[in-house]
């Protein structure tokens, strides 16, 4: 029964990874930008939520919206001021820019808010759970997270495949020069992509902070690894693979923790490396954004 519980908890943990990875996958799929600041932006999203309730008195459930708005706006500025220029320069430049941001965010957060956790308390929801009998229980909040992850990924999928702007986004991923001949400004599509990516990462970051009960500056160094691992395990360019990758990583970490409390990180990394060795295209690998 312990192991069933372990797997269950792992699946619930994987929801956050999947959500965080969705935005990463989208940016890479459309612009070939591997956003090395993704984890730190996620943590920044958590800070936006925590700070808005602590200092501005925003009700906790609404902090999600504040965080999404802040990071969405930031995403637009980031794309327009830095990444557009970097993409025109070289393949290396966008990576340098995102890495620079990854250095700036946690240190700026530490300087402004200290290394202490900024609390984001969701009260009773944090501990409420559904008893399944036999000692099994599903926490309401983790369940909510998984549902949110599924909704986000489904939403992204529908957006990309069922809307005109989504189709144009995929076309831009294929050939940004040619969409211009169709009267489409590829730079606007890039800005939209980054905004969507950062809005989803804000959601992931806020839920992450709520789950942990708070957030500290340097956690992005771990979450960025989780997000990338999720994408690689699931297979580049596959949104459903991303969901599966998140769940696999969640279960691996949860199983590692079950064996020894200092093992979850190593277990997650090892699963990632095993996938690299035996199935480098990922579990649901496809060559194109889908």
């Amino acid at each position: 029964m312990t192991w069933v519980n372990t797997i269950l908890q792992g699946l619930l943990l994987g929801g956050i990874f999947a959500m965080a990875a969705g935005g990463l996958s989208l940016m890479f799929g459309v612009m070939r930008i591997a956003n090395l600041a993704h984890g730190d932006l996620m943590i920044l999203g958590g800070y936006a939520a925590a700070v808005s309730t602590l200092h501005l008195g925003v009700p906790v459930p609404l902090t999600v919206l504040v965080s999404m708005a802040v990071l969405g706006g930031l995403g637009y500025l980031l794309q327009r001021t830095l990444l557009d220029r970097a993409m025109a320069l070289s393949e290396l430049a966008p990576m340098m820019v995102t890495f620079g941001i990854a250095v700036m965010i946690p240190n700026a957060l530490a300087e402004v808010f200290s290394n202490d956790a900024q609390p984001l308390n969701i009260g009773a929801l944090g501990t409420a759970s559904i008893e399944l009998g036999g000692g099994l229980a599903i926490g309401w909040f983790p369940l909510l997270t998984v549902v949110a992850a599924v909704l986000v990924l489904t939403g992204l999928h529908l957006f990309l495949h069922r809307t005109q702007i989504g189709r144009i986004t995929r076309a831009t991923a294929d050939d940004p020069e040619v969409v211009r001949l169709m009267g489409v400004d590829n730079l606007k599509i890039y800005a939209l992509t980054t905004v969507i990516s950062l809005v989803t990462v804000a959601l992931a970051g806020t839920l992450y902070a709520m789950r942990q009960g708070g957030v500290t500056p340097y956690e992005g160094q771990l979450t960025v690894l989780f997000a990338f691992e999720t994408v690689v395990i699931g297979g580049l360019g596959s949104l459903w693979g991303t969901l599966a990758g998140g769940l696999v990583l969640g279960v691996a970490q949860s199983a590692g923790a079950q064996i020894s409390p200092d093992l979850p990180l190593l277990a997650g990394h090892v699963v990632f490396l095993l996938v690299l060795v035996f199935r480098p295209q990922g579990l649901f690998g496809r060559s194109v954004l889908a």
Binding site: Q164, R170, A171, D174, V179, M182, V184, L289, A290
Partner: peptide, 13 residues
């Protein structure tokens, strides 16, 4: 990576 119809629809951009 787009279907024929999707290619055409993007042309309406």
């Amino acid at each position: 990576s787009l279907t024929v119809e999707e290619n055409l629809r993007v042309g309406a951009g």
